[in-house]
Design a protein around this nucleic acid. Structure first.
Lengths: 287, 287
DNA sequence: TTGAAAGCGTTACCAC
DNA sequence: GTGGTAACGCTTTCAA
């Protein structure tokens, strides 16, 4: 009988159960930055971790965290059991509106607000590791190509700068780039056109790093890593492409997905989980 | 009153309505190939087109179309109103199981099965345009780096070969690569290591093309486009990176997303929509 | 035009 | 245990 039902593709209707129990098994997954391959991987891993728990992903595309409360609020008509945001929540107002929905909220690389849970990549360690790695390889004039308005990029920047000054070097030159290839290219153009000659650059992510390297090599004729060493962050597939061969930081995205799902279902004890990052040495730094 | 409700983030419960009407407003969106940035863009556009129609995307990650019927069948307990697959449906059995769910199914670049609706990128035009573009630029010995088991790649291959032989040249050398950078690299390695010296290569997608170029330049020391001209397909952001500067075919993904949504809601008249592709000339082909 | 009641398909409870 | 019934919160219908 049930076997026959399986054959005929009959599935019991989940709606009455949802109505009755108030639990839907639906999770809103907020995707920011479709432009960055690292987010595709994050999305894949979150979806996989949710599916492993029998939860389904309701995809939300958000340009910024600004109206996240509205976007997720709309979905509350489906009685979603929670939300996971790949976008950091910056606005306390958005955070409190989300909290008012009465469902668990997990945000990646966000500052904590109220009861919000946070999964964070180890940004401070990453920044200082990058600084030390460049200094150990002989860099003396450092630069940082920064993102915009993002707490996790800010943590990386601060710890990078601190590692550099702690070792007695001048503070890194900071150039605000953004998060895209094009912005990385333009930022490096500005940096080198200004007459600065850093010998080591840490970039907010791989896209910016690759953009910066294209400017450095193609526009200024400098060699990487002989003249300038470059480190990125994320270890997107393109970082491993032979043409780029970018030294960068990898995170275990599957662990990140699982951490998000864990945090969504767990009770208060741990409200923050940190995913370690690992320096992947490639050809844009000296051996 | 309603205003106050808005402030307090109350949303009417959609479940009873779903229960009553049998319509949920939920669409299963099947994502294959998270590895390829073109799919991220497709996913974004599909989600946007659905949202514009007040439909929500239930994300399904599928490695292949093999068990698509099961994955989507599971979701039928949510009484989804339809499904859109970025994965081509190859198996007639899977197709008929999906059809049995009684909801509209749209597949991208798939062969038609039963009542399934299909959105297709203009693969045949793309193949012949690529062939003609290479020949017009002086190529005489052509090659095609192929994908695997995919109807749309097969269409491109056939029309490319036909365009080449029609103009009196020898049939292109076919090398089965796959769909990734690494497979493109290895395929080009095999091709040139075998002693073949094509002067024009059309690749199943941009990832394969970029991988192939890395092998061509770094492993064999050949120049692109002087020694070998290369054309890819998809116009992913990396194709526009200065280091790659890849000539390729662009599709209007927003139109593709809208076409999927249209086909999902429309009645029989048109069961196939085609999205035109446009040749983007860059530096891997001669002027 | 407005209001009341039936019904959607499960879960969950409470008698038996 | 087991079986019957209320309840979930809307839409829809039918009556007033």
């Amino acid at each position: 009988m049930l076997k026959a039902a399986g054959e005929i593709h009959y599935r019991p209707n989940a709606l009455p159960a949802m109505l009755q129990t108030g639990r839907s098994g639906l999770i809103a997954v907020v995707m920011g930055g479709f432009y960055n391959p690292v987010y595709a991987e994050i999305l894949r891993c979150i979806t996989a971790a949710l599916k492993a728990r029998n939860l389904e992903s309701l995809l939300v595309d958000a340009e910024s965290d600004e109206n996240l409360d509205h976007l997720v609020g709309e979905l509350s008509r489906y009685r979603i059991d929670g939300a996971i945001s790949t976008l950091a929540i910056r606005s306390p107002k958005v955070a409190s509106n989300l909290e008012r929905l009465g469902i668990p909220i997990v945000a990646i690389n966000s500052r904590r607000h109220g009861k919000m849970r946070v999964v964070s990549t180890s940004n401070r360690t990453t920044g200082s590791t990058a600084g030390n790695a460049l200094i150990e390889r002989g860099c003396r004039k450092l630069a940082y190509l920064a993102g915009r308005d993002n707490p996790s990029q800010h943590d990386r920047q601060r710890s990078f700068c601190k590692a550099v000054t702690t070792r007695g070097l001048a503070p890194p030159e900071i150039v605000v780039a953004g998060f895209t290839y094009e912005e990385g290219y333009l930022a490096a153009s500005r940096l080198f056109a200004s007459g600065a000659r850093p010998d080591g650059i840490f970039c907010v992510n791989d896209l910016v790093a690759i953009g910066a390297m294209d400017a450095i090599k193609l526009q200024f004729g400098l060699r990487v890593p002989e003249d300038v060493q470059v480190i990125g962050c994320d270890d997107i597939p393109m970082a491993g492409w032979r043409r780029h061969d970018l030294t960068t930081f990898a995170q275990d995205m599957e662990a990140l997905g699982v951490a998000c799902a864990d945090l969504l279902q767990d009770e208060p004890p741990a409200q923050t989980l940190t995913i370690p990052s690992q320096l992947i040495l490639r050809g844009t730094t000296l051996p």
